[in-house]
Amino acid sequence: MFGLDYSWLSDPAYQQWLLKGILNTIELAALSSCAAVIIGLVGALALTLRIFWLDAIVELFVEVFRNTPPLLQMLFAYFTLSTLGLKVTDPSTGLSVPLLSAFACASISLSLFGGALAIEAFRSGIETMPRSIIEAARSLGYSRWSRFWKVEAPIAARICLPALTNILTNLFKTTSQASVITVPELMYYAGQIYNDTFRTLEVMILVLLIYVSLVSIVTFAMARLERWMAFPGYGKGH
């Protein structure tokens, strides 16, 4: 069809590569997404405590990891940390080897990058809380903590869901950059396949479709979550 040649797909080696690539992409995305959400929650909670030095630490973290390209972070973690001394001695060979594997470097830097963005998303949810709601809770006699957990947090979670969806889909796509530090994910294998077969267009189209499908699963799940959590007066609730 359209003169596209997909005969290379019958090669079991390429099938295996694609499968391995997809699995590694999913693993990397799932791991860093979970970690990013956890970092985001912890960071945003820390900000609500209004402790001067804690605020400074969280803000510094956000500035550093949000304002640097994830590609640079990965390269830094992969090549520079071991030079700075993050090494262990391999008991089987007696050689000094870097502590962090390529996969570890990629998942850590993606988690921190996504985490920094998530902190800001959650913070925006908490800070855009209408004053009237807080005042209403206060006048009903809620303490500071129960006000946060029973009134502010549930509303904030719903407000920041769309922003979180954006962050998670972006994080998913950013996993493709891990091929630069040799994490054998989808793009890593795709590049090798089109270099072998000269079928660049065909490989690109297939990889594009795979990414669209995988990311669609994430956005679909998030949309379902949003609908399930919706309550009257906010977002999709009627």
Binding site: T83, P98, A102, V180, T182, Q192
Partner: peptide, 17 residues
């Protein structure tokens, strides 16, 4: 363990990766 460029691969060899 395939890299984009030769210097990266050589660096990784030196690092015992």
């Amino acid at each position: 363990v395939a890299f984009k460029t030769q210097p990266e691969a050589l660096r990784a060899l030196r690092d015992n990766r």
